[in-house]
């Protein structure tokens, strides 16, 4: 009788353990999610393969892009976010192809594909070890996604367990400029954001 009771108890225990394991099992996306390094504005944030710092985030209703003597105006039903900073590869040449704006409510917005690649934006650039390079990221987002947003940068969205840098911005969403102009330079920094501040 005791032996039967012991077997039933052992069986119940095993079922309870399996049930617990099944319900606390992390999702595959959690297991392979990027390794995040976080920081704030005007600070160099280090991941294992690259480092990133962001100096300025500006918000505007209209974006003008001047390149090769031509100017084009981009309007939006939301606003334009123009983010400037510096990135550096640490050990090998790499590209940073994934940039996202993570709103305070958790919605992700990818880099805009409306602005032509003639302006050197982050996804098209190559970063060499030991040579920090200016980065320019542009997002088109709804006005209510601006305040408390975070910039998320990674080499690619496809590599599991790869580096990801998250930089919390300090934009309030109230300081929206009527328009910004991005001018491509022939010498010095690749672009200038006007009006200068």
């Amino acid at each position: 009788m005791m032996r039967v009771a012991r077997s039933v108890l052992a069986l119940l225990f095993a079922v309870a353990v399996l049930y617990g394991m099944q319900h606390t099992r992390p999702l595959y996306s959690d297991i392979t999610s990027p390794i995040v390094a976080s920081g704030g504005m005007n600070r160099r944030v280090e991941a294992s393969a690259f480092a990133l710092s962001l100096d300025r985030v500006r918000v505007a209703r209209v974006l003008n892009v001047e390149t090769f003597g031509k100017s084009k105006t981009y309007t939006s039903s939301g606003v334009w976010l123009v983010v400037e900073g510096e990135a550096e590869a640490k050990f090998e040449t790499l590209g940073l192809t994934s940039g996202e704006w993570l709103s305070g409510s958790g919605v992700r917005y990818v880099l805009t594909d409306r602005v032509p690649a003639t302006i050197e934006m982050m996804p098209g650039d190559v970063y060499q070890p030991g040579l920090p390079r200016h980065v320019l990221l542009m997002f088109e987002v709804p006005e209510d996604a601006v305040a408390g947003g975070t910039v998320v940068v990674a080499r690619t969205k496809l590599l599991p367990l790869d580096d990801e840098i998250r930089i919390a911005t300090n934009v309030s969403g109230r300081d929206i400029e009527p328009e910004l102009t991005i001018r491509r330079n022939h010498k010095g920094p690749s672009w200038t954001v006007l009006p200068q501040r």
């Binding site: 040449t93 190559v126 070890p129």
Partner: peptide
């Protein structure tokens, strides 16, 4: 030795 560059 510690860093590696790809051709430009």
């Amino acid at each position: 030795g510690s860093r590696e560059w790809k051709p430009t």
